[in-house]
Write a protein that binds this DNA or RNA. Sequence first.
DNA 1: CGTCTAAGCGGATTGCTCATCCGTTTGCAC
DNA 2: GTGCAAACGGATGAGCAATCCGCTTAGACG
Lengths: 210, 210
Amino acid sequence: MSPRSDAVRSRERILGAARQCARDDLRLNDVARRAGVGVGTVYRHFPTVHALVEALTTDDLARYRDLAHRAAAEPDPAVALETLVREGLALQLADGGLQAVLLAPEDASPEVAQLKAELGEVTQQVVAAARDAGVVRADLTAELLRNLGCGVEHAVRVSGGHHPDFYVDVMLAGLRAGARSQDAVVPAKGTTTGSGPGLPGDPSLTPASA
Amino acid sequence: MSPRSDAVRSRERILGAARQCARDDLRLNDVARRAGVGVGTVYRHFPTVHALVEALTTDDLARYRDLAHRAAAEPDPAVALETLVREGLALQLADGGLQAVLLAPEDASPEVAQLKAELGEVTQQVVAAARDAGVVRADLTAELLRNLGCGVEHAVRVSGGHHPDFYVDVMLAGLRAGARSQDAVVPAKGTTTGSGPGLPGDPSLTPASA
DNA sequence: CGTCTAAGCGGATTGCTCATCCGTTTGCAC
DNA sequence: GTGCAAACGGATGAGCAATCCGCTTAGACG
């Protein structure tokens, strides 16, 4: 059963209107007015604000995943990680809803859940490769990397969007700092390069120093 | 003219009640009910939510300043900076309102404004000393340090409060990374060790690499 | 100790937003 | 053309922020 044509039209109108609002405090009433539909229609399509934000963000999330795949294809693990971080941050800064979606414990749409899972897996691969190559701290995990990215995004926002590079540079340099250094490709025992369960979930990592 | 006794009592009750609420979304109505006073009384004492948060936070802000002074007294500039960052972060994590107060462009109470100004100056001293000693990136400023700290706090919160040390370690290592390294005490020309204007305000720094 | 008054109190009230619910409309399958 | 499930839309109720103003009271002064 494909959805009714008017429903499709309403959905588009709502998304269009929502795109013109501040991504953080979306007033559903407001969106309805701008979209020229009733409030009830908005709530029918997007039962919660988060559902709407997810819908607005899905495209960028897909871009994020693609970007991660491209990064993972890099032969040099250090370059891969740096690409993932830098370009990921650019995406997050451009799309104010992305962080909320990335961090949300529950996903309204299965499509988003799928994208997040894929992104998580690829990120794990990139992190594992960098760890195995000894170009980053051995205790880095995909989850920690994600949170660090969110922290940096926050710092940039708090700076009024200025000096994004400063913050990323510090982060990347800090990650490199504890690396096993010189010895290159020899994979340390116990670390996996393949895929595992997605990043949302248990933080199975060795905590850092005290 | 000292304030009337009942006014003092009300103020205390309100603060006591507010301390039992989530620091982020304070409902003034709610605080009033808990404190057993009328809403009007709350608004009389604290015209805005931010004013209330400031009042709740003032003690910890004073602790922050004291801590900064202690750090600045450290003979080793590297130790000074690390102390300031680590202990400052601990304070910020313990007091959920501190970040908001630190970042607020306007202060409701002159006492808070004073504390922030002092904190800013001492931070500048610590940063300048570390820069002059070549133990941190030369483009670090007090403002960038503050924002970085807020970013790290955010990362920790997003982690559910876990692994705070990981994030600080990365940050500190990242700051050391671009340092002029070995050559110790020779102060680079142009950097000041003395006090200047407080940290809130213009970001007069050299942006990092692209 | 009594009086006076300005400071303080409190809650009714207004204005706003969210979110739901339900009577009406409409696309579309047959 | 007809029937109906899906979709629409806005009236509605609940909740909170913030103000306003008549009542109360601390404490200064004689």
